[in-house]
Write a protein that binds this DNA or RNA. Structure first.
Lengths: 196, 196
DNA sequence: GTCTATAGGCAGATAGAC
DNA sequence: GTCTATCTGCCTATAGAC
């Protein structure tokens, strides 16, 4: 009953996702995916009619899983500060696999993406922003977080900072760079000023 | 005596630079540059033996100009806070042209870049970090800037934040998003807490 | 320095057998 | 569902005339 291995469609998405996060949408080919799965590119086309459709499916699944991860964070952690820290950890985990955020990578390549993919990238950032805005607003209410300006601006700052910290840290191959940059990013948000 | 137009080498670099900042290193071709300059790709190879060498020349020139811009900022502006603001404006100007920072884009594509290009990308970030660290340290000394932790960590946070803010803002086509995110990024650094 | 012509490879994609 | 075979187009790159 237990499935020993995922079906081909999922395995294609797994391989393509890793390739895009590491090399970019314009930096991988059907041949790369096919070689990894030991099938032919013709078989690939059976599952995903074209590269654009594969790309769109990648974002959809990635966004879905991200949403699930955020729901889990909310279910398990009660206070805003802990939720924020857990959110940051999601990004750190991605970087540890020498990957960028899928949509961060696609944002860099945005101007070359097929139109349908573009809207999905925007949607990912919008969803993240909405979730983070709610957490920040709650944190301000409960007194665990503080920030000047609107919660949505603070959320945008954080998302930008996290995406950028991954982008810059990866060439150095040091997750410590990411952590240090993000720690600095968060100091301004702590209701209790960071001790020194 | 006045040169009416730049020489071919420079015009190639101009076109290629714009293409990389907008579409990425893997998202442009010799044919794109050749078409823009109305020459052939064979002529392109006379000036730059291969795409990797062109890529390296792009980074070298970009880094050189960046260094000059930073020197100009130091020459014209006396205090650290003004220098920091001017530094941020450099990024904003790039984004206004619907471009990313050249090295931010190349950082995304890092794993696919020819080896010689990689070291140049790292060098760009190292130089920026060193300059910004000096400005931040000076600002702390003169009392115009404050931050917890080391100046170098604050510098890394700022560079990450600026690169990320460009990355995320561009798909939306709104420079306002960049400005708002960066404003939030800087609030923690103002010695005089943002009044309200 | 710029051209024409072309090589050689890889890209995404399709037809049709099994 | 997966294969072989093939197509067309674009890519980087080079030889050699002008």
């Amino acid at each position: 009953m237990a499935k020993r291995s995922a079906d081909t469609g999922s395995r294609i998405l797994d391989a393509a996702e890793r390739l895009v996060q590491q090399r970019g949408y314009n930096g991988f080919s059907y041949a790369d995916v096919a070689a990894e799965l030991k099938i032919t590119t013709a078989s690939l086309h059976y599952h995903f009619a074209g590269k654009a459709k594969l790309g769109r499916a990648l974002i959809e699944r990635y966004a879905e899983r991200f949403t699930e991860a955020l729901a889990t964070i909310e279910a398990r952690l009660p206070d805003a500060r802990a939720r924020l820290d857990a959110y940051v950890d999601v990004y750190g985990d991605v970087l540890r696999g020498r990957r960028l955020c899928l949509c961060g990578m696609l944002a860099a390549e945005y101007q070359t993406l097929p139109k349908p993919m573009r809207q999905s990238v925007i949607q990912f950032f919008d969803d993240n922003e909405a979730w983070l805005t709610r957490v920040l607003e709650a944190g301000r209410q409960e007194g665990s977080l503080r920030f000047s300006g609107s919660a949505v601006d603070a959320a945008r700052m954080l998302i930008s900072g996290l995406e950028g910290a991954m982008l810059v840290a990866r060439p150095y191959g040091e997750v410590g760079r990411f952590r240090a940059a993000v720690a600095q990013l968060l100091t301004g948000l702590a209701a209790t000023p960071a001790g020194h």
